[in-house]
Design a protein around this nucleic acid. Structure first.
Lengths: 124, 124
DNA sequence: CTTACTAATGCGACAAAATCGCTTTAATAA
DNA sequence: TTATTAAAGCGATTTTGTCGCATTAGTAAG
């Protein structure tokens, strides 16, 4: 199932890249130049996640945010860095800090979802 | 607005206490002895959170899980410990590990939501 | 340049989680 | 016993995300 290049893919990736932060579907739909169906945006985003281009963050508001995978992501199997969500501007950004943890024997960690919520530099 | 003691409150707290882990609304509704409306369960849970009896965890599945606040929670202002969600048994448990992080100047952290997802000891 | 294949899109319906408004019930104190 | 009002019940609603299916369009082969 080889991927095809479509205007939708390019537009979504362009918006996220320009924003330089993690975005939710509705934020992307607001910013995007062309008209794309909601389901399509989700499918594009999830495909990018499957391909390792984006990663998904579940914030405290129960919404999925999608962010570009950086070098330090793709090198590791997982995206074990912190995220910060601002309650004022609703921005979600990736922090450079890696998440360090240790768990009891017998546990297998498959993914890490760490979000700090508060007020960001711009809004404080 | 003084709190009143009601069967709903007692039943919800009893279920969570017996379970010894974080529970979602639907899991509570399944386990609970008496019949309680869904909206009521949510209101009871959120009231407990306001009162510092429970704390809320947003898991990767987009569902809220509610867990008892332990001693190390109430002492600190926030609940900065890790949680583990098992993909097999859907159990969410509090881990003793504290979350250690540092953020750039100008950022104000109000809450921490860290969930590790994978397979727990019982299921592996 | 055509044609065939099928990935990707649009659209509507659907599902699940959580909240809200409003009426009724019942816990608490006077 | 009565008055007050927090809490509960109930249905509707909102939001987020997914699914099925018909249609469109990207890609490669001829």
């Amino acid at each position: 199932m080889k991927r095809r290049n479509t205007p939708s893919k390019e537009a979504v990736l362009s918006v996220i890249t320009k924003a330089g932060k993690a975005m939710s579907q509705d934020a992307i739909e607001e910013e995007i130049a062309i008209d794309i169906n909601r389901a399509t945006i989700y499918r594009v985003l999830n495909r990018f996640c499957d391909d390792g281009v984006l990663h998904k963050v579940m914030a405290e508001d129960g919404k999925q945010y999608f962010a570009l995978c950086e070098t330090y992501d793709t090198k590791a199997a997982t995206h074990q860095h912190f995220h910060f969500k601002c309650t004022k501007c609703d921005t979600v950004e990736c922090l450079p800090n890696q998440v360090n943890f240790s768990i009891p024997d017998g546990y297998l960690v498959e993914s890490v979802n760490c979000v700090l919520t508060g007020v960001c530099k711009n809004c404080s």
